[in-house]
Simulated scan of single mutants.
Amino acid sequence: MVSVTFKQNPVTLLGKEVTVGDKAPDFTVLSNGLKPVTLDDSKGKVRLISVVPSLDTGVCSLQTKKFNEEASSLGDDVEVLTISVDLPFAQARWVKAEDANNVKTLSDHRDLSFGEAFGVAINELRLLARSIFVVDKDDNIAYVEYVKEVTDHPDYDKAIEAVKKLTE
């Protein structure tokens, strides 16, 4: 069981923790245009899934910008997804303001489907815990990082390295 804190206070994560080697669980989130998006929508690609509590916070914004910058060098066989519980309209505003067109921002606000499937839904706050998942072309989990303190940055280099290993 993953142990996570938010501003040094322990929080309860809903759902089942995923580990390397697991089959990636399916989920349904919303695109910025309010269309349902599932894991199958990027089938056959390597997926880097960057999970943030809210794009409107400093660390979340920086995390998404970092992966947006990296996305262009990862190739066409890689899909970079950022998932938060922000409303799709707020995500679209952020993408436009930051010119972050290399990542797909997706909203889990409606059902917490992703949060519960990947064990990152924070019960006390109805936010998602900061985490990174890399899913291979066959829908297997290849890399996982549950960031222990939600306000801290993830290990960007390890996540990018995991993606590159799958695309060599």
Rank of each mutant, 00 (worst) to 15 (best):
residue 1 M to C: 15
residue 2 V to Q: 07
residue 4 V to P: 04
residue 4 V to R: 08
residue 4 V to Y: 11
residue 4 V to S: 08
residue 5 T to E: 00
residue 6 F to I: 10
residue 9 N to Q: 13
residue 10 P to R: 08
residue 11 V to Q: 15
residue 11 V to W: 11
residue 12 T to N: 15
residue 13 L to I: 06
residue 17 E to L: 10
residue 17 E to P: 06
residue 18 V to L: 06
residue 20 V to Q: 12
residue 23 K to L: 10
residue 24 A to D: 12
residue 26 D to M: 01
residue 26 D to A: 12
residue 26 D to T: 11
residue 27 F to T: 04
residue 28 T to H: 09
residue 28 T to D: 06
residue 30 L to S: 07
residue 31 S to G: 10
residue 36 P to W: 06
residue 38 T to A: 09
residue 42 S to D: 14
residue 42 S to A: 14
residue 43 K to Y: 12
residue 48 L to F: 09
residue 48 L to C: 00
residue 48 L to I: 05
residue 48 L to V: 08
residue 50 S to V: 11
residue 51 V to I: 04
residue 52 V to A: 00
residue 53 P to H: 01
residue 55 L to F: 10
residue 58 G to H: 00
residue 60 C to E: 01
residue 60 C to W: 03
residue 60 C to R: 00
residue 62 L to E: 14
residue 63 Q to H: 07
residue 63 Q to G: 06
residue 65 K to Y: 04
residue 66 K to M: 10
residue 66 K to H: 13
residue 67 F to L: 03
residue 67 F to I: 12
residue 69 E to P: 03
residue 69 E to G: 03
residue 72 S to E: 12
residue 72 S to W: 05
residue 73 S to C: 13
residue 74 L to S: 06
residue 74 L to Q: 06
residue 75 G to A: 05
residue 75 G to V: 05
residue 75 G to Y: 01
residue 75 G to K: 01
residue 76 D to P: 10
residue 77 D to Q: 09
residue 78 V to Q: 10
residue 79 E to W: 09
residue 79 E to M: 04
residue 85 V to F: 07
residue 85 V to G: 08
residue 85 V to P: 02
residue 86 D to Q: 10
residue 86 D to R: 01
residue 86 D to E: 13
residue 86 D to W: 00
residue 86 D to G: 00
residue 88 P to H: 05
residue 88 P to A: 08
residue 88 P to I: 05
residue 90 A to D: 09
residue 91 Q to D: 11
residue 91 Q to C: 11
residue 91 Q to M: 10
residue 93 R to E: 09
residue 94 W to T: 11
residue 94 W to N: 01
residue 95 V to W: 02
residue 96 K to R: 14
residue 97 A to N: 15
residue 98 E to S: 13
residue 99 D to I: 05
residue 100 A to Q: 06
residue 100 A to P: 08
residue 100 A to K: 05
residue 102 N to W: 07
residue 103 V to L: 00
residue 103 V to W: 03
residue 104 K to E: 12
residue 106 L to I: 13
residue 110 R to K: 11
residue 113 S to E: 12
residue 114 F to D: 02
residue 116 E to W: 14
residue 118 F to G: 00
residue 119 G to C: 10
residue 120 V to G: 07
residue 121 A to Y: 01
residue 121 A to D: 13
residue 121 A to E: 09
residue 122 I to V: 15
residue 124 E to H: 08
residue 126 R to Y: 08
residue 127 L to G: 02
residue 127 L to S: 07
residue 128 L to V: 06
residue 129 A to R: 09
residue 130 R to M: 00
residue 132 I to H: 02
residue 135 V to W: 13
residue 138 D to R: 15
residue 140 N to H: 12
residue 141 I to Q: 03
residue 142 A to M: 02
residue 144 V to Y: 02
residue 145 E to N: 04
residue 149 E to T: 03
residue 150 V to L: 12
residue 150 V to Y: 03
residue 150 V to G: 01
residue 151 T to R: 04
residue 151 T to D: 05
residue 152 D to R: 00
residue 153 H to Y: 11
residue 153 H to A: 08
residue 154 P to H: 00
residue 155 D to C: 03
residue 156 Y to A: 08
residue 158 K to P: 04
residue 159 A to G: 06
residue 160 I to D: 09
residue 160 I to L: 14
residue 161 E to F: 01
residue 161 E to K: 10
residue 162 A to L: 13
residue 164 K to R: 08
residue 165 K to N: 12
residue 166 L to Q: 02
residue 166 L to V: 11
residue 166 L to I: 15
residue 167 T to C: 02
